[in-house]
Structure formats: C-alpha cells, structure tokens
C-alpha cells in the first residue's frame, strides 16, 4: 500500500537557527517543561516569529529544548533552539518574544547558532538554594560532612521504577554562605550533568542522610547558570560564547 503523503507543497525550509536563553522566575517556577513549551509555541505565534515547521501530516514548529530545570525550581539559565524560514534580527526577536510570553518567563539572550551542539556544551549547572529556616552554622556543618564522603547514594523513582545512584561524584563544588536573613543560609553548588541527572533535591536528600539536615520549609532553588564546566574555578562558562564569537568573526 502506498504511503500517504500530505497534499500541497513541502513547508518552506529553515534558513537560520537561533539559540535562546530564558529565565523562569517567581511563581512560574512551578511551570513544567511541557507547560513552558505550550506557552512558548503560542508566544511564537503571537509574536509573528517566522517559524520553520516539520513536514508531514502533523507539522510541528522546529524547537529543541535542552536540559530543562525541574518543576518548582527557578532558573536564570534555560536554553532552547528554534529554526526560522526568514532571517531575523536576534535582538528584535528577543524583544518581541519576551513581550509575548507571560511575565516571569523572560527571554534574556538570543544569538544566531554557530557550529557545534548546544546540548553538548551544557556540562554543568550552578545552583543557588535559599535554605529558609537553616542557619549558616548548621548548613556549614552539613556541607563539610557531605564533602568528606566519597559516596552519597540516593534513590529516586523514575518511570521505570526506583533507581539508586551516587550524587557525591556529580558535585564539583559546594559552599555555604550567609544571606541578609540570619535564619536563611545560602547553599551554592556546581553540579555536573550526569545520567541520571542529579537534581538539587537529590542532593538535599543526601544531605539529610549524612547530617539529618532537614529544612522546615522547602528551599527556594534557582539555577544561576549552566554551560561548559570550568574545573579550575569551579564554575561554568557561557555556553553561547562560541556562537557569539562565530557571529562576530
């Protein structure tokens, strides 16, 4: 039997690929990846972005997402790529798309994609946790104990069932500092992206196991950055730097 093909001409080809960084802030930290993709597709239409579509009976706009932060965590560094059928000015697109997205989903940077994969550059994340109801002293003790361990196993339930994995090896650095509020210490850490991915709540689970650290309210978690790991400085580099250079050259 002949395979059915859609009537009409194929969709216009993509002529430009763009990489975008956005922030998920405030109450919209409770949005999931799927919530964001719905909001984004509608915002792209509202803004009039000349999106490229896949061919076939169910054309989809060409968007690829990279390593989204879990539901409930805020982020200053989420990334995705889109392809368009007419060349656009990245900054004009940023302004238009930002205006079309709900407040608290903010488009921060748009660059034309250079060579190489964006996903591969996202090697690690910088996480910032406001530990409400935890003093600096308590947190410092927990951090020291955690860093002294060689293995910190946690169990999380996946779609395929419970899985136990080590989180200690993914933690590149972990520091406790104070905030303006003495009852709220700050936990900042650099975590390597692994499979399965080690999420901040996995690390909190491990901290609880090591030192019985148990915050009275869940901490406010924000991803500050993600990108290529800088082992020397225990940080991450800008994953769009290569794209910016490619355009500049």
């Amino acid at each position: 039997m002949a395979r059915r093909t859609p009537e009409g001409p194929p969709p216009p080809p993509a002529v430009q690929k763009l990489r975008l960084r956005y922030a998920k802030r405030g109450r919209l930290r409770f949005s999931s990846t799927r919530d964001f993709s719905r909001a984004l597709e509608r915002a792209l239409r509202r803004a009039g972005v000349p999106m490229a579509f896949s061919a076939g009976f169910h054309p989809h706009p060409k968007i690829s997402y990279a390593n989204a932060a879990p539901t409930g965590t805020a982020s200053e560094a989420e990334y995705f790529e889109i392809s368009v059928t007419e060349r656009v000015d990245p900054e004009a697109l940023r302004v238009a798309l930002d205006a079309a997205l709900p407040p608290d989903l903010d488009v921060l940077e748009v660059v034309e994609a250079g060579p190489g994969s964006l996903a591969e550059r996202l090697e690690g994340s910088v996480w910032h946790l406001e530990m409400r109801g935890v003093t600096l002293e308590t947190l410092t003790y927990a951090v020291e104990r955690f860093l002294a361990t060689e293995l910190a196993e946690v169990t999380r339930t996946f779609k395929t069932g419970p899985k136990t994995f080590d989180v200690r090896s993914a933690v590149v650095s972990m520091v406790a500092t104070e905030s303006d509020d003495p009852s709220c210490a700050i936990l900042q850490m650099v975590v390597r992206h692994t499979t399965p991915s080690v999420r901040p709540d996995d690390i909190l689970t491990a901290l609880r196991a090591v030192t019985e650290l148990s915050p009275p309210v869940p901490p406010l978690v924000t991803r500050l950055a993600q990108g290529p790991l800088l082992t020397a400085t225990a940080g991450v580099a800008d994953p769009l730097a290569a794209d910016k250079e490619a355009v500049g050259s």
Binding site: A47, G48, E86, A96
Partner: peptide, 12 residues
C-alpha cells in the same frame, strides 16, 4: 505574523 516585519534582519 504582524510582528514579523519588525523582526526581519534587513529592518535592522
């Protein structure tokens, strides 16, 4: 796509 024109590269 009313916003498309304002976004086009040649406009900038």
């Amino acid at each position: 796509g009313a916003g498309k024109a304002g976004m086009a590269e040649q406009a900038h």
